[in-house]
Computed example of a mutant assay.
Amino acid sequence: MRTPHQESVLSRAARILEAFSQEEPALTVSEIARRTGLHVATASRLVGELVAHGFLGRDDDRRVRIGVRLWELAVRASPALSLRDTAMPFMEGVHDVVGHHVQLGVLDGDEVLFLERLSAPNSVINYTRIAGRLPLYASSSGLVLLAHGSADLKQRVLTGSFTACTPATPATPARLRVTLAEVRQQGYAYCPGYVHEEALGVAAAVRGANGRVVAALSVIVPNDPGAQAVVPVVRTAARGVSRALGAPTGKETAEV
């Protein structure tokens, strides 16, 4: 294993950027050094350079946070932004009907990453947030992405570790295999109480121009019998986004 002083400057800078989280968006240099394993002097020097380039910024109290320049560069040519912009009118339509949470998630590594979320006051509890992540096996969006993912992805998740959010979470290989088969057979994920016992997720696949699944559109509603009524709304919206992305027709349940 390479020791920290053998790392490239770029690798160290990347570790500094990854030290921030949504729960703690602002950190002191000492906190950054502790989280990254860098010497305080090294962390201070690199933070100073990142601030000079606008990738990091400083508050009035000298705490450090992600800079606007980094956001600008990330957005400028992001394929995720194009996907989000295409999906937004359909998401707004679903939100008008459902009145709770509507989300757009994509596969990133072995997790689902949420690009966008629409919510309303007094909506049912929801742990997701924009730029937040959840395990693939626990969320409706994640299950759709996993069900249509590669064999290697399924193997990694099925042989990995599981943490059940609730008793309903399919947090064993056997239960997950059954759940994935159901998702592929019925064309959507229906997840009562998987992440929180009071919430229910419904998700459907969004396909790109090559017919492959590129995202999952989902809603989070109260976990009650009335939730079944939102299934056709979600599936119709997901098909609409797919068509807008140029997906071939008739690909909703096609194998990847």
Score class of each variant (00 low, 15 high):
Thr3Pro: 07
Pro4Cys: 03
Pro4Val: 14
Val9Glu: 15
Val9Trp: 09
Val9Asp: 14
Ala14Thr: 15
Leu17Met: 15
Glu18Trp: 08
Phe20Met: 08
Gln22Phe: 13
Pro25Phe: 06
Thr28Met: 02
Thr28Cys: 02
Thr28Trp: 02
Ile32Leu: 11
Ile32Gln: 07
Ile32Asp: 11
Arg35Gly: 12
Thr36Glu: 14
Leu38Ser: 13
Val40Thr: 11
Ala41Cys: 04
Ala43Arg: 05
Arg45Ala: 12
Leu46Gln: 08
Val47Glu: 02
Glu49Leu: 15
His53Ser: 15
Gly54Asp: 06
Asp61Tyr: 03
Arg65Tyr: 09
Arg69Asn: 09
Trp71Gly: 07
Glu72Pro: 03
Glu72Ser: 11
Arg76Pro: 08
Ser82Gln: 13
Leu83Asn: 03
Asp85Ser: 09
Thr86Asp: 07
Thr86Ser: 10
Ala87Phe: 03
Met88Cys: 04
Phe90Trp: 06
Phe90Thr: 07
Met91Ser: 06
Val94Glu: 07
Val94Asp: 07
His95Trp: 10
Asp96Ser: 12
Asp96Glu: 15
Leu104Gln: 06
Val106Asp: 11
Val106Ala: 11
Leu107Val: 09
Asp108His: 11
Gly109Ile: 08
Asp110Arg: 06
Glu111Thr: 09
Val112Thr: 02
Val112Leu: 01
Leu113Pro: 00
Leu113Lys: 01
Phe114Pro: 00
Leu115Trp: 02
Glu116Gln: 14
Glu116His: 11
Glu116Pro: 05
Arg117Asn: 04
Leu118Gln: 02
Ala120Glu: 05
Asn122His: 14
Ser123Glu: 05
Asn126Gly: 10
Tyr127Pro: 08
Arg133Val: 12
Leu134Gln: 13
Leu134Tyr: 09
Pro135Ser: 15
Tyr137Ser: 12
Ser139Met: 06
Ser140Phe: 02
Ser141Arg: 04
Ser141Trp: 06
Ser141Ile: 06
Leu143Asn: 10
Leu143Phe: 03
His148Arg: 08
Arg156His: 04
Leu158Thr: 10
Ser161Asp: 15
Cys165Ala: 15
Pro167His: 04
Ala168His: 14
Ala168Ser: 15
Thr172Trp: 01
Arg175Val: 08
Leu180Val: 12
Ala181Thr: 14
Ala181Pro: 10
Val183Ile: 03
Arg184His: 01
Arg184Asp: 00
Gln185Arg: 15
Gln186Ser: 05
Gly187Trp: 00
Gly187Pro: 06
Gly187Cys: 04
Cys191Met: 01
Pro192Gly: 04
Tyr194Thr: 12
Val195Ile: 14
His196Arg: 14
Glu198Met: 12
Gly201Asn: 00
Gly201Arg: 00
Ala203Pro: 09
Ala203Phe: 06
Ala203Ile: 05
Ala205His: 00
Val206Thr: 01
Ala209Asn: 08
Ala209Met: 07
Asn210Pro: 02
Asn210Glu: 14
Arg212Ser: 13
Val214Thr: 01
Ala215Asn: 05
Leu217Val: 10
Ile220Leu: 02
Ile220Gly: 01
Val221Gln: 01
Gly226Trp: 04
Gln228Asp: 13
Gln228Gly: 10
Val231Cys: 08
Arg235Gly: 05
Arg239Ala: 11
Gly240Val: 00
Ala244Met: 03
Ala244Gln: 09
Leu245Ser: 01
Ala247Trp: 02
Gly250Tyr: 00
Lys251Met: 08
Glu252Ser: 00
Val256Tyr: 12
